[in-house]
Design a protein around this nucleic acid. Structure first.
Lengths: 94, 94
DNA sequence: AATATTTGGTTTATTATATAAACTAGTTTA
DNA sequence: TAAACTAGTTTATATAATAAACCAAATATT
């Protein structure tokens, strides 16, 4: 039987966010939006879902006078991502 | 920018079906159901979507008196699967 | 100085998707 | 012959993805 794929990670946009955050210590909203090509609304919703799950942290601050939202992956998120990638291997040709 | 992931393939169950069919020349409904662990209803729906897209063919016959539904991947399906797997690589750690 | 535009988002509404439940049609078993 | 099983399909429901509308503040334009 094929393993389950964490539904929270098996979403193009959430996977993209996690993939970016796995590779860099932090990324802000604007960067994530440009890199993923997502709309702001969609990105906002999916970031919140990842945050709720404890996969990422979200920090709001100001860069000069403009607001800034910084995302970071958590140890829980790293673990979940690794588990997902491993499960995914069973779906891909060897 | 991260590449798009074919939404038709980026679904756990449809990906599972395609993954099985990539690895064997044919598989029947019962086998797919057991291997994926899906409910018959869900499998029926997802097989139909793959068939509509031209990714698989679906052949109905009888094994003795019992009906049998056999699925096979098409060249289009193989291509789509390969493209999907390649795009997916960009989401996974190197 | 007022007004229009842009930035950086959130909230709400709509559409699409996944899944389960209910159903059909026929077969085998008790 | 009635109950239970097989092999599915259809329909309904819950969830998810996405877009559209909105908001507050900053910056640019006339």
């Amino acid at each position: 039987m094929l393993p389950e794929l964490d539904p929270l990670l098996h979403s193009q946009l959430r996977l993209a966010v996690m993939s970016i955050l796995i590779g860099s210590p932090e990324a802000d909203f604007v960067y994530l939006r440009k890199t993923t090509g997502a709309t702001a609304g969609n990105l906002s919703v999916q970031i919140e879902k990842l945050r709720e799950a404890g996969y990422i942290t979200v920090e709001k601050s100001f860069r000069g006078k403009m607001p800034r939202t910084t995302c970071r992956i958590t140890p829980t998120g790293i673990k979940a991502f690794e588990t997902y990638v491993e499960a995914l291997q069973d779906y891909l040709p060897k």
